[in-house]
Design a protein around this nucleic acid. Structure first.
Lengths: 192, 192
DNA sequence: CCTACCGATCGGTAGG
DNA sequence: CCTACCGATCGGTAGG
């Protein structure tokens, strides 16, 4: 058993914060998960708040990277929308602890970090709005819809995925992404 | 200044739990909000856990009542879907504290209460699934869609509404309900 | 609903 | 990373 790294501590904190909440986690709880004492955590990080920031920074970075990948690889608005959706699903399922903390505990961040994360989130959401608006301009999406509202609807669906999706269920990730893209584009109206 | 009732305490607890989380709320915090001492709360309720249960029970009851109203008044699947959506929006906006607590803090309920609330929530969600499946049977909704998945998508959108909707925004509640219903039925494909 | 507490637990530190 | 702590705060109670 070798010594823990700072990254190990952040990972452990993410797991605890995701399942018990930031305020429901004590440094002693976290230490127990990691096999050390609560007080020993202070050899690696400055304090509990710093751990929350580190966990949420990770979550935020995963989403940003996913959006950048989608923009680079996309061949058009509909393809980009599918890539954004698929990427978001992969992020929340591959990094459940960080993204759950990011989505549920951001409000408990120190003011400075909170502002930074909210700005990054706005930028990420703008990627969805721009993609939808771009599709409306070239006529592949309905022009009468409000792109900002549709982006909010899509992100609401995506942010909840980790709460119900199971890898052992009827659909795999790729199929879920296709289903959500189809739902967003056609709803219950046209056959997909 | 008259004495507080048990209901007042529960309302105050809902407000605190919604903004600071259950674990982020101390009995002294709550007392301060109510203008009494933390220890005085115990004259009205058995403990902090009991407060969480009481707040979430309220939230759960609002959703149940809304679903029952929609079922009674509906003239068909599409009308019922619109009523379920509109009702859900009204519940989360009229009872922000209780519903936010219901949606975010249910996991911290004592096991027995947790089971009861999860069962009630399943029943509520089934109303949405049945409505969609009913519409598919009579051909007003696309038969190839998975009713359960669509219900999850709709509820994901609805549960996030209180996080971004403003009464002073471009849309009022009724218009938002219409927009969401339109989105669910037509997506970005057909014009609504 | 307040006064006056209780033991337990909290985030965090000094020194090794 | 542990030992040995610190003052502050926690949920909760007895008695009025």
């Amino acid at each position: 058993m070798s010594r823990l790294t700072r990254d190990d501590i952040i990972t452990g904190a993410g797991n605890r914060f995701a399942s018990h909440g930031y305020h429901g986690t004590s440094m002693r709880d976290l230490g127990e998960d990691l096999g050390i004492l609560g007080s020993s955590i202070y050899a690696h990080v400055g304090g509990k708040q710093e751990l929350l920031t580190a966990v949420i920074d990770r979550g935020s970075a995963y989403f940003e990277a996913s959006a950048n990948d989608a923009i680079e690889a996309a061949s058009g608005p509909r393809d980009q929308l599918n890539r954004l959706i698929s990427g978001h699903i992969n992020v929340v399922l591959d990094h459940r602890a960080e993204t759950r903390t990011y989505l549920s505990e951001t409000e408990f961040l120190p003011a400075e970090d909170h502002q930074r994360i909210v700005a990054a989130r706005s930028s990420y959401e703008r990627t969805f709005v721009d993609c939808i608006a771009g599709g409306q301009e070239i006529g592949v999406f309905d022009r009468t819809a409000d792109a900002r509202l549709v982006a909010i609807y899509v992100l609401s669906i995506l942010n909840a995925v980790d709460r119900w999706f199971s890898e052992q269920g009827r659909l795999n990730r790729k199929e879920l992404a296709t289903d959500i893209t189809g739902f967003v584009v056609s709803g219950l109206g046209a056959s997909r």
